[in-house]
Design a protein around this nucleic acid. Structure first.
Lengths: 130, 130
DNA sequence: CTGCATCCCCCGAGATACTG
DNA sequence: CAGTATCTCGGGGGATGCAG
């Protein structure tokens, strides 16, 4: 597929190229914590670190920090530090992050419509294997 | 979100529950090899094992086998063995797999439209950090 | 409260060799 | 050709302790 960009005439995309943008997106949304952070912020808007931590069951401090740092670096959310005592830190989706949220919603919808079918397929497969 | 199912009146979905269908979908499409197999089969239709192996650069035999087995178990593709000599094995998306392909295409489109912006954000972020 | 640093463990995934 | 079996290694990710 060719697409016209501001930087040049056309740019070729090949998901099978590890350096292709579409391939790199998989590295982002493939990270389950990243997706959950985006969904959480999409549902509740601005959230504090501790709120995210409580909402996303099972995530460790280390992984949550690592995840939000990555998302901030990618421009998907903003990190706002309020220099009070104790410190308060808020996270919020950027317009870019919101647009990705829309895409993630499609995934969610597919799951809600079809995962029961997947479960049936699995049972069938496991039954035959046994 | 509530949805009416065949098994009962309504079923509640919570992506923050590790056992929720929508959460489990992330485990599938989050796997880059799985996504690439689905995209490859979506582009070329029925493919042999060796064709998939050649098309998806960088995947090892082990991971490719493991991936297609998982997708077969999930009912997303079919595995057809032709008992010739040598053996021939073909993979093809099921209707369920095709419907997921549509969803993956949304991801691809988002990437093509927005990854340049992500790249800019990263450069900006890294510049500030340095 | 929000994180960074450190230690440590487990298994995901590649490489290699072998088989129907 | 299309896998399995086995070994190995690196790093993802949890637990804990410390700091601004």
């Amino acid at each position: 597929m060719d697409v016209t960009t501001a930087d040049g005439p056309t740019m070729r995309f090949d998901v099978f190229d590890a350096f292709c943008p579409s391939r790199r997106l998989l590295d982002t949304i493939g990270n389950k914590w990243a997706s959950l952070v985006i969904v959480a912020l999409g549902l509740q808007g601005r959230m504090r670190y501790s709120e995210l931590s409580a909402r996303i069951a099972g995530v460790s401090q280390k992984m949550l920090t690592q995840t939000v740092r990555g998302l901030e670096r990618d421009g998907l959310l903003t990190r706002t530090v309020t220099p009070s005592v104790p410190v308060r830190v808020d996270y919020e989706l950027t317009p870019l992050g919101l647009s990705l949220l829309d895409t993630i919603r499609h995934l969610k919808e597919w799951a809600e419509e079809h995962m029961a079918e997947v479960d049936r397929a699995r049972e069938e497969y496991d039954r035959k294997s046994a």
